[in-house]
Design a protein around this nucleic acid. Sequence first.
RNA 1: GCGGAUGUGGCGGAAUAGGCAGACGCAGCAGACUCAAAAUCUGCCGGUGGUGACAUCGUAUGGGUUCGACUCCCUUCAUCCGCACCA
Length: 803
Amino acid sequence: MCIKYNHEKVEKKWRKYWEENPVNQEDPSKPKYYCLDMFPYPSGSGLHVGHWRGYVLSDVWSRYKVLQGYQVLHPMGWDAFGLPAENDAIQKGIHPEVGTARNIATFKRQLHEISAIYDWDREINTTDPEYYKWTQWIFVQMFKKGLAYEKEMPINWCPSCKTGLANEEVVNGSCERCGSGVTKKNLRQWMLKITAYADRLLEDLDQLDWPEKVKKMQRDWIGKSYGAEVDFTIEGMDKSIKVFTTRPDTLYGATFMVLAPEHAMVKELTTEGQKEVVEQYVQTASMKSSVDRMADKEKTGAFTGSYAINPLTQKPIPIWIADYVLADYGTGAIMCVPAHDERDFEFAKKFNLSITPVIQKEEGDIQEITEPYTGEGKMINSGQFNGISSEEAKEVIATYLEEQQIGKKTVSYKLRDWVFSRQRYWGEPIPIIHCEKCGATPVPEHQLPVTLPEVESYEPTGTGESPLAAISDWVLTTCPRCGEPARRETNTMPQWAGSSWYYLRYVDPYNEKEIIDKDKAKEWLPVDMYVGGIEHAVLHLLYVRFYTKFLYDIGVIDFEEPFTFLFNQGMITKDGIKMSKSKGNVVSPDDLVNRYGCDSLRMYELFVGPPELDSEWDDRGIEGVYRFINKVWNLIAENATSKKEATEEMERLRHQMIYEITTRLDQFNLNTVVSGFMEYTNKLIDLAKKEGGIDPETMDALIILLAPFTPHIAEEFWEMRGHKNSVFEQTWPIYDEEKMKEDRIEMAVQINGKVRDTITVGLEEDKEEVLSKAKTAIADRIQGKTIVKEIYVPNKIINIVVK
RNA sequence: GCGGAUGUGGCGGAAUAGGCAGACGCAGCAGACUCAAAAUCUGCCGGUGGUGACAUCGUAUGGGUUCGACUCCCUUCAUCCGCACCA
């Protein structure tokens, strides 16, 4: 007989129960575990099955930890500042606050469908003044430490969003948000000195249990390289130019020099005759967008007319400008060694500049140089350094430069300081007041938050001013230091500001006096498990590490890394492409929940594939999970009141099941946990049929194992079994390896590595017995042949090698 | 260009201190139940040959190590991702 379960009724019942009896109640005696999801931006389009995946994953993990006896912190909140709400405001005239609140309500309703054990009492919202008060507070602390500073410089500018962007927000030369080509714009900007933390951000990666891919991306982004700064004096001038090189060993081969078009000395170095050419080149270079500059690999440049002196050869070398040299890396100027650098070689060929080899690949004369040699070798044409290896020369020449005071060993980073101001409305106002007399002055802490004022138009001005600049009665204020009339800073913070420290606030969300209580921080932090997509590898995940280190430095917290363990879940794809509203390929969870229930969908989200890889979505597959749940229902329903004693075989199956589920879960192989449940349930059903029932202990173990995955049905089963309390008040079952062991096992018998038969052997049988049994089994196959070798691997295989 | 990941039936995927490839599920086929359908249950389900027990090939490609390779080493190819003139 088949009894079908009513998922709607069951799920409704237990949701109501959990509302009155939360699963994860406060208990000071329990050890703490903090499991965090990357909080979402509440967009208007709602959740699809791809979003579910990460949330299910972290909830399964949280519930598992509850059953292991932890008190779990599993909060949720909203990263709610950002462009879409603001663009809606511009188009539809709805205040971003209104639109955001509406989207949050939708998101929250949809998240409830997952039945995660979120602690909604700790919900945070980055746009709440009570929250961003502290976002601003951190900025003020950074300002006081000199880590937030103003600078006028050419920055990345998105012409469509009409705002400046951080380096991290430029992806392949385009705006990370809207995809428009990024240009440069000279603007006064607030910057955060993340470069001051470059070394610590790099070194501390080693201690993190994060995916190697993310760590590598961060290492590459920080881009530390060792080298030397070398001074080249300018011929006929009492000045010098500093260059950065990672190859001091090639200094004798430096036959020309190139400056970035934006280099400060370009004007000074340009001779009368070259003026027109140089000015034209600088002009053209400044017009190029990042995309063009990247796509256009053909070398271009202009000669300034001036010469520098190579400090080792004492020969004059021409100074050029070219846009393949970046203004904001190293010193913005390079020495060029065309014989040993591909780019310099290309440039030298194009403009017919001389090429001097200084490293010999192998013995013999160098004929003509047809391509640059970038490897190691023996030094030549390098005066006193001839004959040593180039590897050695790197160190020796750098040391020599230091002794002669014409250079010094140094390091350089690809990481740039963080452009932190945005010329948009919907963000945290930067809490600074500009006073003519006192300069930039932070808003006193007791006056925080500086709240966002109402504006008439949210439209970005495009001039480099934020819409806030138009509200004169907000802008005009007095200097907190001298009391004279002053102006408020009108730029806002980037969306990353609020998310760079939010994980702290969940621990102590209502604290009005400080950002977080020290004792509570000690109790809960850092985060034990952080779950989210990989798209933030060098954005959010870098920024949040920077903020954490800063807060450590000023004594707010006593740890330096926010997330001990990071898990990146793969995307859900449909027809091979990422599921998204704009692609029109989203699958809504609503129908599936209605038809099969939350428990089925939760389990299916895990079953689609390895959680760290992208997985293709197929609605039909959920049927299998649904059938599985019904099978368990029947098994439990038919045996609910069973008082049967477990047979040895049943007990063995139980321990094997606990072992398999637990170890797979611990390794995060969640797709195989689900298949494991199916496999063992099938075995239990077969055995129950054979033995006329199943014992209570095995049933209870199965129910507890299922609880993190299918919580509603697990509670229902628990109740069916006659237990009074919640299944989540139980403890995770443990296995006994002794009781898992089979007393008879099947072994494959191979001839020359090919399986020809199988034999059943008992635990007590020794090598000789097994081998003779095997040989009997394959006797007619090896008749007349000579046995060369016999391989016996206990419990695994027998291989008879014959000739 | 550099770096990384991935490649197994019609499909999603199992199996790595080297040891019976295809677990589990989807789809499909056949049967049972039914007036019928759905649901459920049972069986089959990589290719080729054979009525058949069986033989043979088979984990992107070609080679190597080994008694034995999806797993280790080398070659090539394809797809995806990251970085991209960082001196």
